[in-house]
Design a binder for these strands. Structure first.
Lengths: 155, 155
DNA sequence: GACCATAATGATACTCCGTCTCGGAGATTA
DNA sequence: TAATCTCCGAGACGGAGTATCATTATGGTC
């Protein structure tokens, strides 16, 4: 199994996506008791080859030789083990991307679909306080930020 | 057409939900060129009678005499005209509720399903700045806060 | 009140997205 | 090698929402 050549598209994160990434994820799954199987590696490779948030169906058509159920199962496993995180677009379409792990939020470009992690933004504390004011004990939140990335904002 | 008696459940917003609310919404729709029809009023009444965020299907079964498509259409119209806002639960289930209008966020109780508006929380500016740092021009965002309301947090 | 253009309705077919089911294939352990 | 188990693929299934389309109700006009 070899990772398909990543399509470099200009503005994306400088992130190693190669056989090493796949091996790393497979190793982590093995530690958790999951088997190292061919279809699973194919799914992980395909995930690692994506340069921006993708849908489950996109992954399915990128992997015609892997069953649809298997793709969905693999994706779900990756989400559950925090290898992949879910991204919600403005129209509520659900997409996925390799996770940089830990809780974080995404900046999503409405034009080109690129995503970036939102850095230097500590909403956590603020939300917890505001929730407390309303008598709520906050346990979690979901935040997505939409806009235009540097390149797409120019025009 | 008369609004069904609201079920008071303890902790909910003190908000007038009666024939007046329905008339008000219908009037606003008329101003926009939409007709005042019986099924539409039924949908609006049912929406106004809800004490907490509800699903489209719940509304359908609360209105067995109104076609499913009509309920969905009515709901969509209400969302488009800002009379009703959409609420996303942690499991991505989409619910609706009467809008208090203007941009705001929701505090959602994971136990009883109650919702409250998040007051005194100005994430807007913060997000815009953080986005700018990443070279993004923010245009919008989606935020939901989950937790337990005062009553449900006690146990 | 009658007429008419058209917005709205409701039954139902359909799409989309994801999960479930189940028989079979490969691993893993005894 | 037998027993067990995870995983697989094909396809059935289910929930949620939309599209289609013939029919009906609405609101303006005369």
């Amino acid at each position: 199994m070899v990772v398909t050549t990543p399509k470099h598209s200009g503005h994306e994160h400088p992130r190693p996506r190669s056989a090493a990434v796949v091996d790393d994820i497979v190793a982590q799954l093995c530690d958790l008791g999951y088997r190292d199987t061919e279809p699973r590696r194919l799914v992980i490779s395909a995930v690692a080859a994506q340069s921006r948030p993708f849908t489950a169906e996109e992954l399915c058509s990128a992997l015609p030789c892997v069953g649809r159920a298997t793709v969905y199962r693999g994706l779900r496993l990756l989400v559950e083990t925090d290898q992949v995180c879910r991204v919600l677009l403005e129209d509520r379409e659900l997409r996925y991307q390799l996770s940089h792990q830990g809780h974080h939020h995404h900046l999503l470009c409405a034009v080109c679909g690129a995503s970036a992690d939102l850095e230097g933004c500590d909403v956590e504390e603020m939300l917890r306080d505001a929730a407390a004011t309303a008598g709520f004990k906050m346990s979690g939140h979901w935040l997505e930020v939409y806009g235009r990335c540097g390149e797409c904002a120019e025009d």
